[in-house]
Simulated assay, not measured.
Amino acid sequence: MKRVLCAFFAVIAGLSAATGTATGAPAARAACPDGKPGHVRCLTSYAPAVRGLADAPSGWGAPDLASAYRLPASGGADTLVAISIAYDAPNLEQDLNTYRAQFGMPECTTANGCFRKVNQRGDAGPLPVFERGWAIESTLDVSMVSAACPTCRILVVEADDPQLGNMAATVDTAVRLGAKVVSNSYGGKENGSAMALAKSYAHAGTTIVAASGDSGFTAASFPASLSSVVAVGGTTLARDESSPRGWAETVWQGSGSACSAYVAKPRWQKDKNCAKRTVADVAAVAETLAIHVADVGGWVTVDGTSASAPFIAGLYGRTGHFGTPGDLYGRTGFFDVVTGNNDPRLGGAKCGGDYLCVAKPGYDAPTGVGTPDGLAAF
């Protein structure tokens, strides 16, 4: 295992996917439709594979992320990180290992004990029906966990459908099966029915992570709005050879930020313009990620805080340290994102131009306390 992991990190400098999609590539489309009442939707969009261009990645790959976030060249815990998801992705294990092989990571399979997929009750079968959009989401999730933590084991818990109660059940099942980190790349509207499920997203000794949403500054997304959940916003990543880091980040325009209408202000949040819980807590790249999805033709590029959340979940898994969102506040070990906003049509006017939708020095809602600078903050 150690020899193979060394091979992964040895290719970081040499394997780097090009940014963006190819000229003439189709525009990104939402992977999942808007959720029906009482349901959630996955939070990703993708550019469909282009004939002749789908046999190699065209977005940011694992080595790019390792470079941008200064991840160490070796090491990591074998933490069990779980993915809470709806429906089945029959090719998930194959797609995951195509991704890992492309970027020099060891296999993560059912046979070697690294990968496991179960239904919401924790059984190997029967699994739910296939749904293509959610399969794209599943593939993105396991790929981003792998990029952040090549040594982590992965558990995928598939709900029968994206009803709120079924999604909450997947989190409870994941924890029961031993997951120390659970990633949730979906969201729905805050309401009383959703809040009744809050206890499923609060488990002592387990870190629960959720995507903040892909609609910019708007109403808060559940479960990201819960104070027991690490809410993860998104950034746009670019190379910047003029800087010591070699990379630059700005707010991804879709990055979800919000003031909760239901969740009380946690004592660890000190911002002034939300009377209740503010989303987000932290951020990571959410745009132009390369993943392999056989069901849509091969290598595609994807956007969304659905990428940011599992990447942060993988960092928790890699350190083997677990906690609550409040543990991130006041720590060092973050890049401060100070440019961009998630209110592109109004240039930040929707929130009055303040930190709720415009990047500022220090805490701001679209990117929280910032993006990871290594593993120190986790």
Rank of each mutant, 00 (worst) to 15 (best):
G38W: 03
R51H: 10
G52W: 13
S67H: 10
D88Y: 14
D88I: 06
H39V: 14
D34K: 03
A54R: 08
T79P: 12
L71F: 11
R51E: 15
E93N: 07
P48F: 10
S84E: 05
P90I: 08
D34M: 04
C42T: 14
G61I: 15
T44E: 15
I83W: 00
D64M: 10
L96K: 00
P90A: 06
L43P: 09
G35F: 10
L71D: 02
E93T: 05
P48T: 13
L80E: 04
S84T: 04
Y46D: 02
A66F: 03
A62W: 03
Q94H: 00
A31P: 13
G76T: 09
R70M: 12
P48Q: 13
A77T: 07
H39A: 14
D88E: 15
A86V: 02
A86K: 01
I83P: 02
S74N: 03
G75N: 04
P37K: 13
P90K: 05
L92P: 06
A31Y: 11
N91V: 12
A62R: 03
A73S: 07
K36C: 03
L96P: 00
D34I: 01
G52M: 11
D95P: 06
Q94W: 00
G75C: 05
P57A: 00
N91S: 15
E93A: 12
L65C: 13
K36H: 08
P63V: 11
A62N: 08
A73R: 01
R41W: 03
A56C: 09
K36R: 13
A62L: 07
Y87C: 07
C32W: 01
A54V: 05
Y69R: 07
S45W: 12
T44N: 14
